[in-house]
Design a protein around this nucleic acid. Structure first.
Lengths: 196, 196
DNA sequence: CCTCCGCCTTAACCCAGGTCAAGCCCAGGT
DNA sequence: ACCTGGGCTTGACCTGGGTTAAGGCGGAGG
């Protein structure tokens, strides 16, 4: 077993027989990415995903009008991939970019479907993953509906302390749905008010 | 089979043996709700969900500060329930309220878990449902990130034409994340500009 | 050592949407 | 026919965040 820690993490979601995990490891490939390198670029078929072994990624959506917004940051132990597009069998609208030199474990969705045919545990895992992703998105929706940009910022750092120092400010802004200018203003206001 | 149309709809998501569907119908109970009646109220355990047979519902979240925001509208053929809370085994933070005299088919999550034990098709169905919910929430997130209130409004009516005339304006506003005042202004501006 | 570049900050101005408050319209009840 | 109340609109004013543009600053490369 090459990745025992990953195995354990997944096994907390659903019972996962070690021999099934062995099959998964057999089809997975490791990949290294340098800073700024893309794991997935817009237009690519959404036919692969990966687990982050080391590093941080951002999932960027470039809107038709050219604006960039950030759907998520992903660090160690988390999944990267154009999940929504994969489910809809479309090509990716999303770029997934390494913010640091990174290392990931890649699966082809096709190979994963093979695994699903072999044992129900993979379907159960896929269900858990879908459910978790849903819960996260719903939480984010909630934040857009009832919090101001400043409140969203505070919450962001509460929920992602491990990202501190690893992601540029402008990306935090793009994640919160504001410009870097607005974010800078918010931060300086807070600094000023905190010191008084 | 009491609900052949519903059966067909679900069978498009995943193969669903008729005898399994029969078991589901056996544990389901019909319920009628009058206008303004709550299917679920905040604080209730999230231990039941339903399919809308007739009517429209809104899923309302009352924030700690008292503001109401609307997570979704649900009409015929759609699911109602505190899905996120169910997955997290929490009690509901959400009220689900009938906007019209309505009629639904209720399942206890407990009974549904029984069905899951009996046949994998139910797990597969649950997976599809989770995935679909995810895709919808992600689309909504996207809209908050890159569209103005006016653009969200236009898109809302494009995507939910069947709700026209069935939901009060203020609820549309609460769904879009703005006040009813702002919505009214946007609409009058559009009327004015359209006539010119 | 200087320069360039990427990233952040600050300032000035603008606009969408919030807030508060006054009306309006109309359906339902008496 | 008259009230009443709920839901929508309108106006005046305020504020948060967008836009544009001008620096500041620290690190990499000449």
């Amino acid at each position: 077993m090459r990745f025992p820690k990953l195995f354990e993490r997944l096994a907390t979601l659903t019972p996962l027989p070690p021999e099934q995990w062995a099959k998964a490891e057999a089809v997975a490939k490791e990949q290294s990415l340098s800073k700024r390198e893309l794991f997935l670029r817009p237009g690519d078929p959404a036919d692969r995903f990966a687990v982050v072994l080391q590093g941080v990624f951002r999932a960027v959506r470039v809107s038709p009008r050219g604006g960039e917004s950030i759907k998520a940051f992903r660090a160690e132990g988390e999944l990267i991939g154009a999940y929504a597009e994969m489910l809809q069998r479309r090509s990716s609208m999303t770029a997934i970019e390494a913010l640091e030199p990174s290392h990931v474990l890649v699966f082809q969705t096709q190979d994963f479907q093979q695994l699903e045919q072999g044992h129900v545990c993979w379907e159960r895992l896929a269900r858990r993953v879908a459910e978790q992703h849903f819960v996260l998105k719903e939480r984010r929706e909630q934040e857009f509906l009832e919090l101001s940009a400043e409140e969203r910022l505070v919450k962001f750092w509460e929920e992602h302390p491990h990202l501190k120092g690893r992601i540029p400010q402008r990306d935090v802004a793009a994640y919160l749905g504001i410009t870097e200018v607005a974010l800078s203003r918010i931060m300086s206001r807070r600094r000023r008010e905190a010191s008084r």
